[in-house]
């Protein structure tokens, strides 16, 4: 097996992972192969329902795959689940804290469940409260904390046992900007200190600014994978975004889609987005056609190569559709 060589370097290796939920029409994860290098800050980007949570759940032993295998730090998850679970920290999509317990009690409980005890547990609880700057709230019930503070608590619970690998599933949903920045800074610092981080999100800005290694998932498949610059360059994706006065007609959208070099056109209310390898040329042609059709144009932007554009060009849909 060629992968054996990399396994020392790889934090996570997924091979042929498939999962279909009972009653699900199509697989939620449809054959994923992925290698996450040790020490990397890995971003898994995809719209809602793409299969991120399902994939991550299989990575951390929450969900048994229908097929395929998971290796964490060179260990087979199916063969030694408890050892693997001891090495990863998980921050689930849901808050996953006990509302009636205080942050300190939450940390203490989950720490015990990770097998910590005695003075080491006490030390880790204090350390995690410090990292999350939850000191002043340590003795208040978690249910009385703000959404941002609860998220921070949820994050540090995942750190209680000092894992080598931290897996976060959309950790910034429903959070205030300060807490978001705070979480970003903490994650960057931990990654700099050597921790492998897997970061799941449907916000491309987050993934763009945090992650050096990115995979894009859609309908259970990885549709792009590599460094940020690398996948953007490979796709040659550029976007055009035109804000019209009112929603364009079907006929106009169809004509826009027929423009040479335009791969995809999508429309969200009165905002029209198109993906093209030559966004400048495409933009001129689009403006011409729209004026011809009498659709008033409010603003135009183009040429910014980003993950959103890449996603549109790959799937024909916006990330948040």
């Amino acid at each position: 097996m060629p992968r054996m060589k990399t396994s020392v370097e790889a934090a996570i290796e997924l091979g042929g992972l498939v999962k279909t939920y009972p009653g699900g029409a199509s697989p939620a994860v449809a054959g994923v192969d992925l290698v996450v290098g040790r020490g990397s800050f890995f971003g898994l980007l995809g719209p809602n329902g793409a299969g991120k949570t399902t994939l991550v759940s299989m990575m951390c032993g929450l969900l048994a795959p229908d097929a395929g295998r998971v290796r964490i730090a060179g260990l087979d998850l199916a063969a030694s689940p408890d050892e693997v679970k001891g090495r990863i920290g998980v921050v689930p999509q849901d808050l996953a804290v006990y509302p009636s317990l205080t942050p300190a009690e939450n940390l203490e409980y989950f720490g015990s469940m990770m097998g910590l005890g005695g003075s080491r547990l006490g030390g880790r609880v204090d350390e995690c409260l410090r990292i999350a700057r939850l000191g002043p709230y340590a003795q208040k019930r978690a249910e009385t904390l703000s959404g941002g503070l609860k998220r921070r608590l949820s994050l540090v619970i995942g750190l209680i046992h000092e894992p080598e690998i931290l897996i976060l599933d959309e950790p910034t949903v429903g959070i205030d900007p300060q807490s978001r920045l705070f979480i970003f800074d903490s994650l960057k610092a931990m990654n700099a200190a050597g921790m492998t981080i897997v970061y799941t999100s449907h916000y491309m800005e987050e993934v763009e600014c945090l992650c050096r290694d990115i995979a894009i998932i859609d309908q259970g498949r990885i549709i792009a994978h590599g460094g940020l610059a690398e996948i953007l360059a490979a796709s040659g994706a550029g976007t055009v975004e035109i804000r019209a006065q009112c929603a364009p007609s079907e006929a106009l959208l169809r004509r826009l889609g027929e423009i040479d070099g335009i791969r995809q056109v999508s429309c969200e209310g009165s905002i029209i987005r198109a993906a093209s390898a030559q966004p400048t040329a495409a933009m001129c042609e689009m403006i011409r056609l729209m004026e011809e059709a009498g659709a008033g144009i409010l603003s135009v932007s183009h040429g910014v190569s980003n993950l959103e554009a890449l996603f549109i060009s790959l799937t024909g849909r916006g990330l948040r559709e």
């Binding site: 001891g86 998980v90 849901d94 996953a96 804290v97 989950f110 990770m114 619970i157």
Partner: peptide, 16 residues
Amino acid sequence: KERQAGCLQRLRSMPV
């Protein structure tokens, strides 16, 4: 409620 809050999943991601 514990399951809906995600606590049970968190526990299942731990060696318990």
